[in-house]
Amino acid sequence: MSGGSKRYLMKAVASSVAVTSIGVLPLFLGRFQVVLLTEVIIWGVFALSFNLIYGYTGMLSFGQSMFFGAGAYILTYGIIWEFGLPLSLVMVALGGALLGLIVGAVAVRVRGAKFFLVTLVGAILFHLIALDNRWLTGGDDGLLVPLQFRGITENFYLIYGFGLFVGLVTFAIVKSPVGLVFRMIKGDRERAELLGYWTDGYRILSFAIGGAIAALAGGLYGYTTGFVSADFFHWSYSADAVVWTVLGGSGTIAGPFVGAALLTFIREVLSSTWGVVYPVLVGLLLVGLVLGFPDGVVGLLGRISSRYSDKKGADGG
């Protein structure tokens, strides 16, 4: 067996083991931990949407909170108007994708640092608009999602299944020919253009897919908490997605989930006593990652494991 396919197999086995063990975890955890784990999966899905745009297509977007908030409200109104959960989720995904198309089409017109700015301004604008239109969003006070009571474990498996689905779909996308073009654009946009690709089109497409996924995360978060408010549009959600992805490892499927899990864990360890220093810690962590470990945890693990297996291969041969 060649080194490449061996590594591939190893990765597949490791992922399956990880996914399965998360699936059986609720059997051993208390109610509170199950709720936390459910949230981690939602945050992982949300960070994954950013990762598709940044880690795979190379666009540092600060606009994910727009899709998150929009998804949460679309789902809320879907439930209020009694469309049922499945249809509401379809609406959330379509709405997120449509919004992604629009935001993407605007944002790709500018390049570099200006791109970041346009997405940041977009995020701020959406938050302001949500605050200003209380009749629709309920403003700060928000809206209740009229839900029947569900068991915590039941909800966990709903989110778990959903996270698995989104993870697999994203994996299929990045391994597809379209995903290859995304990665080429990340490497060198102008070069991809010279090879005949309409890179702006692909960048908008990446935004649309990322928008759909982020909207689904927002919808599921609203569905889990039973409450949505204008603060779902706050830019700090975008910031969270950025930090989770960079910490976990951008350009990987597992990275966003790992990052979300790690930071949620740290926040819980700090608990209410030390909770105030959490943002400071996150900021310093980000600086440290940028300077020392731009590949994040998953990238680091990958490097260690490949060095280990190379060594073993050399010893054997």
Binding site: P177, V178, L180, V181, M184, A192, L195, G196, Y197
Partner: peptide
């Protein structure tokens, strides 16, 4: 592959 696939995605 990236250079080749453009015509026949």
């Amino acid at each position: 592959r990236g250079a080749v696939q453009r015509g026949s995605l």
